[in-house]
Write a protein that binds this DNA or RNA. Sequence first.
DNA 1: TGATGTGAACCCATTCACAGCC
DNA 2: GGCTGTGAATGGGTTCACATCA
Lengths: 240, 240
Amino acid sequence: MGAERHNVSAVSDSPRRRIPEAALSRLPLYLRVLGELSNETVNQVSSEQLAELTGMNAAKVRKDLSYLGSYGTRGVGYDVNFLTYQIQRELGLNHDWPLVIVGAGNLGQALANYGGFTERGFSIAGVFDTDESKVGGVVGGVRVRHLDDLSQVVQSKNVSIGVLATPGEAAQEAANRLVRAGVGSILNFAPVVLSVPRGVSVRKVDLAGELQILSYYEQRRAANAVAREAAGAPARGVSA
Amino acid sequence: MGAERHNVSAVSDSPRRRIPEAALSRLPLYLRVLGELSNETVNQVSSEQLAELTGMNAAKVRKDLSYLGSYGTRGVGYDVNFLTYQIQRELGLNHDWPLVIVGAGNLGQALANYGGFTERGFSIAGVFDTDESKVGGVVGGVRVRHLDDLSQVVQSKNVSIGVLATPGEAAQEAANRLVRAGVGSILNFAPVVLSVPRGVSVRKVDLAGELQILSYYEQRRAANAVAREAAGAPARGVSA
DNA sequence: TGATGTGAACCCATTCACAGCC
DNA sequence: GGCTGTGAATGGGTTCACATCA
């Protein structure tokens, strides 16, 4: 595929250097911890401390942060508020993002009620469903609308993020509607692999899958316990 | 730190070869797709088809599956039911896993009601909270108990997986209780980095963090659009 | 002095490409 | 002939270790 090495002289230069996916996925974590430090009126923090608080190691923290620019002070550490600002800026969190939730079942309702989204600057522009018995109800302080109104809301409120919380059967069609309405990113809770046009970003959260992975660890732990009992050795854990 | 290189000759050798974390995390996905194929009474599937259905590529699928053993047939593909069985077996899904949910707020209730867990063989052995106004209520068909009863339930029902859905402030203490009660794996929805004894497995689901990552993509998309407008070039998307 | 920022080394994950088998 | 299973090659991510600078 594209064998470009220097992505320098692109169209007026990419708006900002691209952050590696793995590092990007940790920025929200740093952000949260920094927020807590700020509440405790801590002003400076070292990569060592940040590593401790996030369960990472210090070198990784420094490398991750270095993708944002050189915002630390050698011999001192990072200014908590300044670093917070820079991460927010990089993630695009310096303004609110309206989002829509599609699916007003158990999960959709919970997500609408879940304070964590609005707390972090994501306002809920609408909750949608096709089930007439749900339409008209109020969820998370928002009236549930029929999915047919999706496009209108997305456009009038400039929504670019959609949260998909339908049953699996309805997910692909709902995703199509989101895309047609103009949504560019989808957070998918439905147990389905979505097919979307190139350019649309999808992240998937697989709740049952997470449990299945834990099940694997538990099974190993159990098997180890049996093996240990047979041998009489006092080893512990599964090294997760 | 620990400079152990070969962890081979441990106690009586690990009960089964260890599956690389990355491959492990995809097994639930394969499993789900296989389940759908089975419903459609498809008997055989090639790595190519599985790749198509899961959004992976064929080589990755084959390598992932090869960690389980050699369960395919050259020139033919994989037997859907047999492969399903082998993955389930590897993940420890050939028996039910009881779990407890700690936190009966919005998220805890939603998870209890969410059919996806029980559908996949995880029964809910109990829902717990410390809030007296919640204790005694019924959620997901289960009575909410006081957190003080956790240990008793975990032990009598042999629970080894805990789902943590408390507010951040309560999460660490709740995790301590889970561990003390004997739970070995925790699925953590609280916006907190848990500290647990070595040997306990934790997986974290960061709902707000997922949105923040999408926000990054959207911000880039927006910036690209501006740059394109300035140049008049017809490129599309953010290459996510 | 002490902590950042970063090449280089290392390690794990993905992809390639083909031998092996049905 | 066709598809799996897997060594080898590649690539990305993590860690090391140190030059750099407040």
